[in-house]
Write a protein that binds this DNA or RNA. Structure first.
Lengths: 252, 252
DNA sequence: ACCATACATGCAGAAACGTGCAAGAACAGG
DNA sequence: CCTGTTCTTGCACGTTTCTGCATGTATGGT
């Protein structure tokens, strides 16, 4: 790994996570903490980050505000996204749904991860353009403005021609009785079509989705491999879901 | 191995891997590290890469984007885009290419225009999401990072299933003898496929494209309805194009 | 106040770098 | 066809830069 590459990596971590912990990065990249510290010192000297005990923080107040807003309103989504991104294996193929949580997954994917991402969301595709190692495959079709994804017959048909290891689906409701639900019938059908093309399907559900239900059923529990949520593992609804035999992956 | 070949190889590695390590390339191509370093130094001097200790990195995408947005052509692209947007009739169907000029067209479309837009660019699609009256149809396929559009067999096949009144194509070169050209063979094929599905095809060419040529031919003049450009109507090259029978729409 | 951790500094080995030089290839002109 | 010139390439050498370790200091938590 080139020194300059490390610096970019650090800046990327700052932008994505809003912080850098020297020790973690050193362990992650398998270099000495000294090097990380030296890099952070240099970056701070250039005004690109703010050095703090243990690591560094972004310098831009705007970024901090953004990170703060994310951490308040969408901290759950970010946690879920990180946990979901960890499921993606290098060289693997991922079907990624549309929606804000899935977009967070796209942002949480390591920038240098070599994998194939299949999506029906132009937004997700655009977000992954700067992942040089990621192969992108776009499923076309009529765009539903409501959720900004390709749906309908053409999109479902396009989905028939792909296969993947993993499918990450966002839903708007996760309820023990109503199951996995979303607000639009076309979207629900599309999600089913995507799920059917992957060996494993995991559901992305930040805590506010747990215990709620929307109008249209997406999938029965049996068709899913698990649920990724930041909700309290001892939450009553979560316990119920576990009792149904659902694997619940905690996101923290 | 020719020197120019080496340079291409290095640029290819930069685009594919996002970095070049001098030592590795030297070992790989069985040439001295000195030669690699010399090449990298030359490329850096031309602004085609960023020299760092140990190798080289691509010019920062942020810088490229910034430069692209700031570029002298911005004004020209906006003019061309406005003129092109005026060709779109309410209720009509438009096939819109990818690229920065086409993106400018997307932004130039009246927000309340009721039309159908077909595109193979996730970026264009994302830009049109806030046009409530516009029907959007996305052509899927493998995404080519270079220009951020869907290309290849699947995309061409998807294009076979649509028809439109108008197709607006961006190109990188407009030359009286070389014709309409672009820098990638797959892209050229995709542009041909798009053009074939529309009754009329107009070429978007801001003035800096006029008189230049790239590697791959897109279309012969006969297959195009006209050229939209902000170049001086009395420019020598423009006059030549008119003499070939091409309709030239001025953009001001 | 104490301890663990993070930090800065100095140092040494290793790696990368730039420069000058010479051998060889490509080329133009006679 | 020969010769002189120019360009490229690889090597050698001295210099700079990077990196990890060791040492001593500073910081934050308990």
């Amino acid at each position: 790994m080139l020194a300059a590459e490390r610096r970019d990596h650090l800046l990327g971590l700052l932008a994505r996570d809003g912080k850098v912990v020297a020790k973690d990065v050193a362990a992650d990249l398998e270099i000495s903490e000294d090097s990380v510290r030296r890099d952070l010192r240099d970056l701070a000297a250039e005004g690109l980050c703010q050095r703090v005990y243990g690591g560094a923080l972004p310098v831009s107040p705007a970024v901090v505000d953004y990170a703060a807003r994310q951490s308040v309103a969408q901290d759950g989504k970010r946690k879920v996204a990180s946990a979901a991104a960890a499921l993606v294996r290098p060289g693997g193929t991922l079907i990624l749904d549309g929606g804000t949580t899935a977009l967070a997954v796209a942002h949480a994917l390591p920038r240098d991860l070599a994998c194939t991402v299949i999506t029906h969301s132009p937004t997700i595709a655009a977000a992954l353009l700067d992942h040089p190692q990621a192969e992108l495959f776009l499923l076309g079709g009529r765009i539903f403005k409501h959720s900004a994804v390709a749906c309908g017959a053409a999109a479902v048909e396009a989905a028939q021609n792909v296969s993947a290891d993993l499918c990450l689906l966002g839903v708007t409701g996760v309820h023990p009785e109503a199951g996995l639900t979303t607000g639009d019938a076309e979207e629900a059908a599309m999600k089913r079509a995507l799920s059917a093309r992957a060996a494993d399907t995991y559901i992305l559900a930040s805590s506010e989705k747990i215990g709620t239900a929307s109008r249209f059923r997406v999938l029965p529990w049996e068709k899913t491999s698990g649920l990724i949520t930041d909700a309290d593992p001892h939450d009553a609804v979560v316990e119920q879901l576990k009792a149904l035999g659902l694997e619940v992956l905690p996101a923290n």
